[in-house]
């Protein structure tokens, strides 16, 4: 066991638009490796317990909590963080450097401290790509995978509702 822990394994994955080749230990969490080896500082660690959703990234098109995966599980995967939000939304970035979803969040004051925001944005982009006209209930159901301690959620719901049509 000790020996296995100490072993370095090669890891190759795509993070946003870059191919990342690294060496990791089997115990290394994907969240740590994304932050430390791939420069993805937007992957925020809010609990490390798979509950708060702040570290959510999109892995081969599916939102996942990076703190619940070992980095070695991401071998060969394509990982998208908030840096890929425009791609996830299928749009180009707007005039202020913000996507449609980011602009809606800003307009509705759907963020305060911003710590939960990048994870929330990527999973919401995937949600909206699969549900173009979600009901309020569906939006709330989607948001239940994320904890936000600042906003009280009402403005987040309003921001997403403004894009649902």
């Amino acid at each position: 066991m000790e020996a296995l822990q100490e072993e370095w394994l090669p890891l190759s994955m795509t993070v946003d638009r870059a191919l990342v080749n690294s060496r990791v230990r089997p115990r290394h969490l994907l969240s740590d490796v994304l932050r430390e080896h791939a420069g993805a500082a937007s992957v925020h660690i809010g609990c490390g317990q798979g509950i708060c959703g702040a570290c959510t990234v999109v892995i081969d098109g599916v939102p996942a909590r990076a703190c619940l995966m070992l980095a070695v599980q991401a071998e060969g995967c394509r990982i998208q963080t908030v840096a890929s939000l425009a791609e996830l939304e299928g749009e180009s970035v707007g005039p202020q450097g913000l996507t449609r979803l980011q602009t809606a969040f800003r307009h509705h004051h759907a963020l305060q401290c911003g710590f939960c925001t990048p994870g929330l944005l990527v999973s919401t982009a995937v949600f909206l790509s699969r549900n173009t006209a979600p009901s309020r209930d569906a939006i709330v159901d989607h948001l239940n995978g994320h904890l936000c301690r600042c906003t009280g959620y009402a403005n987040i719901i309003a921001a997403i509702e403004s894009l649902a049509k």
């Binding site: 932050r35 908030v82 840096a83 450097g97 980011q102 307009h107 911003g114 925001t117 990048p118």
Partner: peptide, 23 residues
């Protein structure tokens, strides 16, 4: 007013404490 501080928070480029840790 919409917030001046939002853009870095929305794009994930804001730097919190843990983001300042260096090798």
């Amino acid at each position: 007013r919409r917030r001046r501080e939002d853009a870095p928070l929305l794009t994930g480029t804001a730097r919190y404490l843990a983001d300042l840790i260096e090798p």
